[in-house]
């Protein structure tokens, strides 16, 4: 299903003159380019201007493969118990947080006692896909939309850019043109260019709080959230991906969750699959639990 979409988008990108620049080479046995996590830093001498109104490219956290992992919680507010990272929970939000048993963060539980929906390969939804193992992420665009391909679990998402309205959130779903529509893991996203190098997207209509988490430390998110993402193209090789959430059901005020610098990678880079497989997850748990029982421990 995705392949025809991508093929048409690649064609549109080429036709619209949005040339995809080939960047520095990395090992490519047989022509299969391997991700390059050791790019030289961008300097004044190597910095090139960004193309106008384009996010096209294969992007990855500029800080390396671990910079977008976010195991300790969203980048801007790691869940480490420090007062400056305390969140403005509503009473309901606080109650929700306490009901989540996460493996990471200040209130982490031990393995086997957690209830992270990630562990059963449930879709993480928006915005958690932005907060979970963000590594090589591909952006395609045409005159109607921008499409993000997340590496984790081989997921993709559409942000419409053709001027359509953001749906109205109502209990249990959204209204589009007066018609009631379902909630979605990726919600409904629309975006626009606020200047030639800054794209802002908003997402509503996401899944309810019993299906999704905000991050790996069990912070909650509800179906009343409005997610605002800002993609700022700093130069040809740098994109800063920021996000703010406004979820009055869970948080008493909007707050910024991340500001992640991304580095452009060679668009020909081949990515291995990075799926969540229930059977492999089960095998992992079996091995881990076998060790946890102390088999062979000294």
């Amino acid at each position: 299903m995705l392949r025809p979409l991508l093929a048409s988008m690649v064609g549109l990108v080429a036709a619209s003159g949005l040339a995809v620049e080939i960047v520095a080479q990395s090992p490519a046995p047989g022509g299969w380019l391997v991700p390059d996590w050791n790019k030289p830093p961008i300097t004044d001498a190597t910095r090139k201007p960004a193309p106008r109104r384009s996010l096209v490219g294969m992007w990855a956290p500029a800080g390396g493969p671990g910079a977008g992992t976010q195991a300790s919680g969203v980048l801007a507010k790691p869940n480490n118990g420090r007062p400056e990272n305390a969140l403005p929970y509503t009473p309901y939000g606080q109650e929700l947080y306490k009901s989540h048993r996460a493996l990471e963060g200040a209130d982490a539980v031990v393995a086997g006692q957690d209830n992270d929906p990630r562990n059963t390969c449930e879709p993480l939804g928006v915005p958690r896909y932005n907060h979970y193992n963000v590594r090589l992420t591909q952006f395609f665009q045409d005159e109607h939309k921008i499409v993000l391909l997340y590496h984790y679990d081989n997921r993709w998402r559409v942000i419409w850019t053709d001027g359509r309205e953001l749906p109205t959130v109502v209990d249990g779903g959204v209204l589009i043109g007066g018609e009631f529509r379902e909630q979605r893991f990726f919600g409904y996203s629309v975006g626009r260019w606020v200047d030639d190098y800054t794209f802002v997207a908003q997402t509503v209509g996401t899944m309810p709080e019993d299906r999704v988490w905000l991050d790996s430390t069990g912070r909650p998110i509800s179906d009343k959230v409005r997610v605002t993402e800002t993609f700022r193209r700093v130069d040809s090789d740098t994109l800063v991906w920021s996000e703010t959430i406004d979820d009055p059901k869970v948080y008493s005020q909007p707050w910024e969750t991340m500001r992640l610098p991304m580095r452009l990678h060679d668009p020909r880079t081949d990515l291995m699959e990075y799926y969540c497989s229930p059977s492999e997850q089960e095998n992992y748990n079996r091995i881990f639990e076998g060790t946890a029982k102390g088999k062979g421990a000294q």
Binding site: T69, A71, L103, E104, A108, V110
Partner: peptide, 12 residues
């Protein structure tokens, strides 16, 4: 250094 793992607590 290693990035934190995911399916058990990094604090382990």
């Amino acid at each position: 250094s290693a990035a934190p793992s995911a399916h058990h607590s990094s604090s382990a």
